[in-house]
């Protein structure tokens, strides 16, 4: 299982995008930290900066005792150990569910793997989907596979970008339970982007307001 220790997240980033400036500055502890704000505020951009997919103009990003970004450092995405669950899932269409799940697992050094395929599929309730193709999955199933794929890569922090927005009410409830279990049982810090107050109220350990 994952580490149960206190992981500090320290983020201070600024980035110009077009004619907007996106800035965020906060520290977070374990549990689920929600980045809450209206659409277009730049919440996804902040996640992308933490993941290494977008380069901040200045600032720093620290997770635990590792510096992912500052004036002297800019780790590539594959070195950051950041798990990312995208709003649209982004499962690889040319691989079955099993191969999607094991993509990151196979790449991670054994020391970093804190979950096995069996554990993940049981945790998420997706073992009956392993031989399916992503295109044939329902929204809720695809999201669970996306979560599983990210978890199996052995991340130190999990990023989630509005994972419930494309789901119907019933599915939403199921996935929220999964997220709560990740928050409580796995001890993995989560950065969670949402514009939905109800979601945030239920899931968040800490709320950071973004944007205006």
């Amino acid at each position: 299982m994952a580490k149960g220790s206190v992981v500090a997240i320290d983020i201070d980033v600024t980035r110009r995008l077009g004619d907007r400036v996106i800035a965020a500055r906060f520290a977070a502890g374990p549990g689920l930290t929600a980045l809450f704000g209206p659409s277009g505020a730049g919440k996804t951009s902040i996640l992308n900066m933490v993941a290494g997919l977008l380069r901040p103009d200045r600032g720093h990003i620290r997770v635990g005792d590792r510096t992912l970004f500052d004036s002297a450092t800019d780790l590539s995405p594959e070195a950051r150990r950041v798990g990312y669950v995208f709003q649209d899932g982004r499962l690889f269409p040319h691989r079955r569910v099993r191969a999607n799940l094991t993509y990151g697992l196979d790449l991670a050094p054994p020391a970093n793997r804190w979950m096995s395929l069996d554990e993940a599929t049981r945790f998420l309730g997706i073992d009956h989907l392993l031989d399916r193709w992503p295109q044939g999955l329902s929204g809720g199933e695809a999201q669970r596979v996306a979560i599983g794929r990210a978890l199996l890569a052995g991340p130190e922090i999990l990023l989630m970008d509005e994972p419930l927005s494309s789901l119907d009410a019933a599915r939403r409830g199921d996935i929220m339970k999964v997220i709560e279990r990740i928050r409580d049982e796995l001890g993995l810090p989560i950065l969670y982007v949402s514009h939905d107050r109800a979601e945030v109220d239920r899931l968040a350990t800490q709320v950071v307001e973004i944007g205006e």
Binding site: E78, Y84, R90, F92, Y103, L107, A150
Partner: peptide, 18 residues
């Protein structure tokens, strides 16, 4: 090619080559 899929692969630990 959907570049976002490439981004996802990178966050899962893939080097650009892989």
């Amino acid at each position: 090619i959907d570049r976002r899929l490439e981004g996802a692969a990178r966050t899962l630990g893939a080097t650009p080559w892989h």
